[in-house]
C-alpha cells in the first residue's frame, strides 16, 4: 500500500512544480502559438486562438508581467499595432514546461 502511494507520488510530484502561469489553457494556447512563430500581432493571435479581445489582453498582461512575452506597441499609419513575441525567458520556460508535462504523462502511461 505504502509502495503504491510512493509510486503515485513520484508521478504526481512534478505537477506541483508545473509552471502555473503557462498551465492555464488559454495562456498555454497563447504560449504555443508564440513559440512556433517569430512574432505576431494582437489581431493574428486573437483570430488563431479564438479568444475575445478582453480575455486575450488580460492573459497577455499576466504573461508580460511574468516576463514571458515581450510587447511592442507601435503605429502603422494611424492605427495602433501590438506586436507580441516570446522572450528568451518565456521560450525557456515553455520548453521546461513541455519536458515536465511529457515526463509526467509518459510516467502515467507506463503505470
Amino acid at each position: 500500500m505504502a509502495k503504491k502511494k510512493a509510486e503515485s507520488d513520484d508521478i504526481i510530484q512534478p505537477l506541483s512544480d508545473i509552471d502555473k502561469i503557462i498551465h492555464e489553457p488559454a495562456r498555454l494556447m497563447i504560449m504555443s502559438y508564440l513559440y512556433v512563430v517569430e512574432s505576431a500581432d494582437f489581431v493574428f493571435l486573437r483570430n488563431q486562438t479564438g479568444l475575445t479581445d478582453g480575455n486575450l489582453s488580460s492573459h497577455l498582461s499576466k504573461l508580460e508581467t511574468a516576463g514571458y512575452v515581450e510587447v511592442e506597441k507601435k503605429f502603422k499609419g494611424k492605427k495602433p499595432q501590438t506586436i507580441l513575441k516570446l522572450s528568451k525567458q518565456g521560450r525557456e520556460s515553455f520548453e521546461v514546461y513541455r519536458k515536465k508535462m511529457e515526463r509526467m504523462l509518459s510516467g502515467l502511461s507506463e503505470k
Binding site: 512556433v36 512563430v37 517569430e38 512574432s39 505576431a40 500581432d41 494582437f42 489581431v43 493574428f44 493571435l45 486573437r46 483570430n47 492605427k79 499595432q81 506586436i83
Partner: peptide, 9 residues
C-alpha cells in the same frame, strides 16, 4: 488589417 500580422520562424 483583418487577419493580423505574423512573422514565421
Amino acid at each position: 488589417p483583418r487577419m493580423g500580422f505574423v512573422k514565421f520562424g
